[in-house]
Nucleic acid binder design. Structure first.
Length: 568
RNA sequence: UGGGGCGUAGCCAAGCGGUAAGGCACGGGACUUUGGCUCCCGCAUGCGUAGGUUCGAAUCCUACCGCCCCAGCCA
């Protein structure tokens, strides 16, 4: 087993199936070929990432090919803006389609030819029933359908009508082309499904060339077969469509032998759901349109664009995808798993910085007035190659407000009256006096430091349990920090059908901290930089802040905090 | 009441007739100049339920139960 080739250790039903197909020589010398088929009508989210990375990984692991093909058969819903964002997102994720970027609409002409041949073969007919009538004739879940009165239309008449549909002679919605299959089938998809509808609409790629557009069930299998896709993966809800998929491909192989030589097969797997978020396009759109978030790329959104802007790495998403696995069982993955993957990838890569989010002033009373001393800090613990930096220390600093407690519980080992704590990479200080304002709020701590306790050359003999971060007041840089948290307070915002999912939004999903104090080296941050703010979490320099004067850092994910958990 | 799919730990998920992998979460401990990281330990006499076949069943058979999807000229 090697790192690059995952076929040995990835144990899921799809890999198993492919290995069997390969073992049986089912593909001849044809390489494994997958595809990701997005409809350009919205932004991609992490659920799509699962599909993208799965398809891509299969191609990579089996030395096959991976296509990107836009399913653009409905001009009314689709836009160029979305093809651009989808391409950018997939590229960022690292899935490589090489030179195989396709559009379903590229094949409109050959598909039309296929439709013609179906008609000639007597397997498709033009139906004049209106939408409502078609619905009624289709029957119900428990009752069989009734055959359309146009089902027996002669081939020549069908041919004539279908050509005239293409020529734009008839109004939108007035006629459709249907497959002649089985109106009594228990599977509604087989009750003479619509193959083409009349749509006088301008398409983002073909313009006004067409006035008929193919339906998914006709278009998708044919496009797969045309591209030589060996394994066509899709989500579970398409399971019912598989007989129709096969019907189309079998007919394509028979009727279009000059272009279709391979019978692709559809395999379904469960789509990804995650706790504390929503994944449906409709709900995500509502969040954007009703202003609950700042757009599709808001860092709280589960969109690829949102995750990217938050600072999540593509590497973490790929790791997440592999850990989640693939199966046919409906599942909702704990967001904590994604958080774990994010932290794990950043642990050894993100340089450390000291940043105080909620400051409490500390004056060191026995420090020489006006003196500044530089202390040396490692950028990444345990990684010499990441180097060191100098951080200025002085007699007035800020520490995190919650690193002090006036009346601490037994296991609290940070600062408290009379207690000692180490200032990271500097000295041990003792809290001598607590200063409060008129309302009893702590406004300042008076401490003394131990000259002998200097980090790296400690001769004090003291052993303190607590180590806290700090920032020298005089040298502090000011930055803005966006603390992002789960968008929803409940695990499953969609659980209750009665209650609008909006009501579960976390009012604290974004806390903006302005005038946050940071060690001066933070100003060296350049776009794309990720840091660990000591004891706080991983942060990403926002690539597109609204205010360019002050750096804005987005919290990617908080550090694990076993103290916070213990407190509960 | 038709057709299809799915039930293995709190959440994912291997397992394919030989006696329940792994990850996350959780609990405990060690280490620690990040209450981080790392490292140990623990965590299903049990695989939706009930029967049956078998020397042996999560795996095979039967019946039941529960959840999800399908009646777009959306994908």
């Amino acid at each position: 087993m090697t790192e690059k080739n995952g076929t040995e250790f990835k144990s899921n039903f799809i890999y198993t199936m492919i290995k069997e197909d390969l073992g049986k020589g089912l593909l001849g010398d044809k390489p494994i070929h997958t595809r990701f088929p997005p409809e350009p009508n919205g932004y991609l989210h992490i659920g799509h990432a699962k599909a993208i990375l799965l398809n891509y990984a299969i191609a990579r692991d089996f030395n096959g090919k991976f296509n990107l093909r836009f399913d653009d058969t409905n001009p009314i819903k689709e836009e160029q803006e979305f093809v651009d964002s989808i391409i950018a997102d997939i590229r960022w994720l690292g899935a490589d389609w090489e030179d195989r970027l396709f559009f379903s609409s590229d094949y409109f002409e050959i598909k039309y030819e296929f439709a013609l041949r179906l008609v000639k073969a007597g397997r498709a007919y033009v139906c004049d029933l209106n939408q409502e009538e078609i619905r009624q004739y289709r029957g119900t879940l428990t009752e069989p359908g009734v055959e359309s009165p146009y089902r027996g239309r002669p081939v020549e008449e069908n041919l004539d009508l279908f050509k005239r549909m293409r020529d734009g002679e008839f109004p939108t919605g007035s006629r459709v082309l249907r497959a002649k299959i089985d109106m009594a089938s228990g599977n509604l998809n087989m009750r003479d499904p619509v193959l083409y509808r009349i749509l006088h609409a301008s398409h983002h790629r073909t313009g006004d060339k067409w006035s008929i557009y193919p339906m998914y069930d006709f278009d998708h299998p044919f496009s797969d077969a045309l591209e030589g896709i060996t394994h066509s993966l899709c989500s579970i809800e398409y399971t019912d469509h598989r007989p129709l998929y096969d019907w189309i491909v079998e007919n394509a192989v028979e009727l279009m032998p000059e272009v279709v030589k391979f019978h692709s097969h559809q395999t379904e797997f469960a789509r990804l759901n995650m706790t504390h978020t929503v994944m449906s396009k409709r709900k995500l759109r509502r969040l954007v349109e009703e202003g609950y978030v700042d757009g599709w790329d808001d860092p709280r959104m589960p969109t690829i664009a949102g995750l990217r802007r938050r600072g999540v790495t593509a590497e973490a998403i790929a790791d997440f995808q592999e850990r989640v696995g693939v199966s046919r069982a409906e599942s909702t993955v704990d967001l904590a798993l994604l958080d774990h993957c994010i932290r794990q990838k950043l642990e050894t890569k993100a340089p450390r910085r000291m940043v105080v989010l909620d400051p409490l002033k500390v004056v060191i009373t026995n420090w020489t007035a006006g003196k500044t001393e530089n202390v040396k800090m490692e950028n990444i613990p345990g990684d010499e190659s990441a180097g060191y930096r100098e951080v200025p220390f002085s007699g007035e600093i800020y520490i995190e407000r919650d690193d002090f407690m006036e009346d601490p519980p037994k296991k609290f080992f940070r600062l408290a009256p009379g207690r000692e704590v180490r200032l990271k990479s500097a000295y041990i200080i003792r809290c001598e006096e607590v200063i409060k304002d008129g309302d009893g709020n702590v406004t300042e701590l008076r401490c003394t430091y131990d000259l002998l306790s200097k980090s790296g050359s400690d001769r004090s003999g003291k052993k303190v349990k607590g180590v806290i971060h700090w920032v020298s007041t005089e040298h502090a840089a000011r930055v803005t920090v966006n603390l992002y948290d789960n968008l929803f307070v409940v695990e499953n915002p969609e659980e209750d059908d009665e209650k609008d999912f909006i009501s579960h939004i976390n009012p604290q999903s974004l806390i903006v901290c302005r005038n946050v104090l940071a060690e001066p080296s933070i100003l060296e941050a350049t776009p794309g930089n990720r840091y660990q703010f000591l004891r706080k979490g991983y942060f990403y320099l926002d690539p597109q802040p609204s205010n360019k004067d002050v750096p804005v850092f987005n919290r990617i994910v908080a550090l694990r905090d076993s103290w916070a958990r213990k407190k509960k």
